[in-house]
Simulated assay, not measured.
Amino acid sequence: MADDQLDLVSRDPNGVNAHLGTLLFNDVLGEPDGTHSIDCVWKLSYTCFECWKGLCYKLLTLFCGICIAMEWGCEFAYIAFYHVWFITPCMKVCEINCGLCQKIYALVINCCIQPCTEACGGIFVHFKR
C-alpha cells in the first residue's frame, strides 16, 4: 500500500494503542464465586456494556475527533517547525562553538602542558628500580 493511502482495516499498525484493544467486559466487571447476579442481568449487563462502549466511542469521535485531530496536527506541525527553525540551528551553533573550544583546548594542552609533562618525564625516565 502506498504511504498516501489510508488503511481502513488496520488502523493501529504500529500498536500505539494495543493495550486498549483488549478492553473487554470481563476486564472491567467480574463477579467472584459465591456472589452472582441473575444470569439474565449478567448477560444484559454485558450487552449494555459492549453497546454503550461502542456507541459512546463513535459519538465522541463524531463530535470531537475531527477537532482533536486538527489540534494534534497543529501541535505536531509546531513541533516540526520548532525543530527545523530553532532547535536544529541552535544545535549547529553549539556544534560549531564546541569545535572551536576543542581546538583551543588542544592548542593549550599541546603548547603549555605537554612540554611540562615531557620535561618531567625526561627527569624521571632515568630512575630505575
Rank of each mutant, 00 (worst) to 15 (best):
V16Y: 07
A18W: 02
A18Y: 04
G21S: 03
L23V: 15
V28Q: 07
V28D: 06
L29N: 05
L29C: 14
L29W: 08
P32M: 03
P32N: 12
G34Y: 06
S37Y: 12
D39I: 08
D39S: 15
D39H: 09
C40I: 14
V41A: 14
V41C: 14
Y46F: 12
C48Y: 10
C48L: 15
K53P: 06
K53R: 14
L55A: 15
L55Q: 14
C56P: 03
Y57D: 13
K58Q: 15
K58M: 15
K58L: 15
L60N: 11
L60Q: 06
T61H: 14
G65I: 00
C67T: 13
I68P: 02
I68T: 14
M70A: 13
E71N: 02
W72S: 03
C74T: 02
E75R: 03
F76W: 07
F76R: 08
A77V: 02
Y78F: 04
Y78V: 07
I79E: 08
I79T: 09
I79F: 11
I79D: 06
A80C: 10
F81N: 08
Y82L: 04
H83E: 12
F86I: 13
I87D: 02
T88C: 10
T88S: 11
C90N: 10
M91C: 10
K92H: 05
N97P: 00
N97M: 13
G99I: 01
L100C: 10
Q102T: 12
Q102L: 13
Q102K: 08
K103F: 03
I104A: 08
I104H: 03
I104F: 00
A106Q: 05
A106H: 01
L107K: 06
L107V: 00
V108A: 09
I109Q: 03
N110A: 05
C112N: 08
C112T: 11
I113R: 06
I113A: 08
E118T: 10
A119L: 11
A119G: 09
C120T: 06
I123M: 12
I123G: 10
